[in-house]
Amino acid sequence: MKKEHSLILKAVLQNKSEKEIREIDKILDSNLDWIEIAGIALNHRLGGYIYKGLNTSQQKKMPKEVVKALELLVRAQKEQFEENLEEICKVNDALEEAKIKFAVLKGAFFGCEMYEKGTRRSNDIDLLVYEDDLGKLDTCLRAMGYIQSNMSNGEMVEATKKEKIIQRMNYHDLVPYVKKTKMGILELDINFLFDGNKNLIDKNVYEMGTMVYKGRYRITGLNPYTNLAFLCCHFYREATDTIWTEGKRDVTLYKIVDMMNFIRFYREQINYDIMIEVLKKLNIEKKAYFTFKIMTEFYEYEFLSEMLSRLDEYKSGDDEMKAIHDTKNKTTIYRDETFFEKTFARG
C-alpha cells in the first residue's frame, strides 16, 4: 500500500491506539505527495476526518497551506452541522411526540454520537421511518414547514405524484422533504425499507427496538446491532447496482471509514454471538459478509476477521463479489478491479 493511502486510512480513525499513533508519526516523517493526499481527502469527503484525527504535533508536520485549508473546511462543516443539529433535535422531538416509529441514521447519527463537530460533512438528514407511519410523518413534517421536492433547477417546488411514485419504486425511499434555512436548503431523506422490497424485515427491526441516545445530544436511533446491520445493507445496495456505481458512489471512501469508526466506537458493546443472531433474524448474512469482506481490503481488524469466520457459510464467490446489477439493461456486469483499486484510482 502506498504510504499516502496508509496515512489517510490511519489518520481518519477514531480512538487510535498508541501503536497507530506511532505508525502515523513514522509516515509523516517520510517524504509524502501532499497533492495526492489533499486530492483524495477532498474527493472522498475526508478533510475533516484527517484534520480532527491528527494531533497538534502531527499537524505541524503537514504543509501549512494544507492545514489552513482544512481548518477552513472544518469551520464551515461545524457551522453547517450546528444548524442541522438544531433541526435534527426538533424533528426528533416532533416525531417522538407524534408516536412515529423512526430512527436517526448515518451522518446525522454519526455527528450526534461519534464525531466532533466539523469532522464530517453531511448534506442531509437521514431517517428510517416505519412504512405504516408515513402518513403521520407527512402531516408532522408539513406542519414544520417541509414540502416534498426534487429541487429541479434549484427550485423548491412540490414534487408531482408521478415523481413520488417513481422514487418509491426505483429507490425504495421518498422524494426528499426540504425546507429553507439560514444555510440554504435542508433535506430530509426518508427511508422506509431497512433492506430491499424482497426482504421486508422492518417489523422485525422495530421489534428489536430503537433506543434513545443521551450522549452529547438526545436522539432516537437503532441499537448498535441493527445500526451496523443497516450500514451493511446500505453499503451492499450501493455497491451492487449501477444506479449508484455509475457515479462512483460505491467507492466514496468516507462510507468505509464511517463503518470502521462505528465498529471501533461500539466495539465493547457488540457481542459476536448476538451480532450473528441479529444478521440471521434479518436474513442479511450474505450482505454482511460482502460488506465486512470489502472492508478488509482497507483495514485489518479483529472484529472483521472474526465476523467473516463466523459467516463463512454465507461467503460470496469471486463472481458474486464482483457482480453489479445493471438496472437500465436488466443484466449483470462485473467489476474488473478491486474496491481498493477503484477507490484510489485517479480520475
Results as ranks from 00 to 15, higher is better:
residue 105 L to I: 13
residue 105 L to T: 11
residue 106 K to D: 12
residue 107 G to F: 03
residue 107 G to Y: 02
residue 107 G to M: 11
residue 108 A to F: 13
residue 108 A to S: 15
residue 109 F to C: 13
residue 109 F to A: 15
residue 110 F to K: 03
residue 110 F to N: 14
residue 111 G to D: 09
residue 111 G to F: 08
residue 111 G to T: 09
residue 112 C to Y: 13
residue 112 C to W: 10
residue 112 C to E: 10
residue 113 E to N: 09
residue 113 E to I: 14
residue 113 E to P: 01
residue 114 M to L: 15
residue 114 M to P: 07
residue 114 M to F: 10
residue 115 Y to T: 00
residue 116 E to L: 07
residue 116 E to V: 11
residue 116 E to D: 07
residue 116 E to R: 10
residue 117 K to P: 02
residue 117 K to T: 08
residue 119 T to E: 04
residue 120 R to T: 10
residue 120 R to W: 04
residue 121 R to H: 12
residue 121 R to I: 11
residue 122 S to R: 02
residue 123 N to A: 15
residue 124 D to S: 06
residue 125 I to Y: 05
residue 125 I to A: 02
residue 125 I to T: 12
residue 126 D to A: 10
residue 126 D to Y: 14
residue 127 L to R: 03
residue 127 L to S: 02
residue 127 L to C: 04
residue 129 V to M: 03
residue 130 Y to W: 09
residue 130 Y to N: 02
residue 131 E to K: 15
residue 131 E to P: 02
residue 131 E to T: 14
residue 132 D to E: 14
residue 132 D to C: 11
residue 132 D to R: 14
residue 133 D to N: 12
residue 134 L to M: 09
residue 134 L to N: 08
residue 134 L to Q: 06
residue 135 G to S: 13
residue 136 K to W: 08
residue 136 K to N: 14
residue 136 K to T: 07
residue 137 L to Y: 14
residue 137 L to M: 13
residue 137 L to T: 12
residue 137 L to V: 06
residue 138 D to R: 11
residue 139 T to H: 11
residue 139 T to S: 14
residue 139 T to C: 11
residue 139 T to Q: 14
residue 140 C to P: 03
residue 140 C to F: 01
residue 140 C to L: 05
residue 141 L to A: 06
residue 141 L to I: 15
residue 142 R to A: 01
residue 144 M to R: 09
residue 144 M to D: 11
residue 144 M to N: 09
residue 144 M to K: 13
residue 144 M to P: 02
residue 144 M to A: 09
residue 146 Y to D: 00
residue 147 I to R: 00
residue 149 S to Q: 04
residue 150 N to P: 02
residue 150 N to D: 00
residue 150 N to L: 12
residue 150 N to H: 06
residue 151 M to N: 05
residue 152 S to F: 00
residue 153 N to H: 11
residue 154 G to N: 02
residue 155 E to H: 04
residue 155 E to G: 00
residue 155 E to S: 00
residue 155 E to Q: 04
residue 155 E to V: 11
residue 156 M to R: 12
residue 156 M to K: 14
residue 157 V to P: 06
residue 158 E to N: 10
residue 159 A to H: 08
residue 159 A to V: 10
residue 159 A to R: 08
residue 160 T to P: 04
residue 160 T to I: 09
residue 161 K to G: 08
residue 162 K to L: 08
residue 162 K to V: 12
residue 162 K to I: 13
residue 162 K to Y: 13
residue 163 E to T: 03
residue 163 E to F: 01
residue 163 E to M: 09
residue 163 E to I: 03
residue 164 K to M: 14
residue 164 K to Q: 13
residue 164 K to H: 01
residue 164 K to Y: 00
residue 164 K to T: 02
residue 165 I to R: 02
residue 165 I to Q: 01
residue 165 I to F: 00
residue 165 I to A: 01
residue 166 I to D: 15
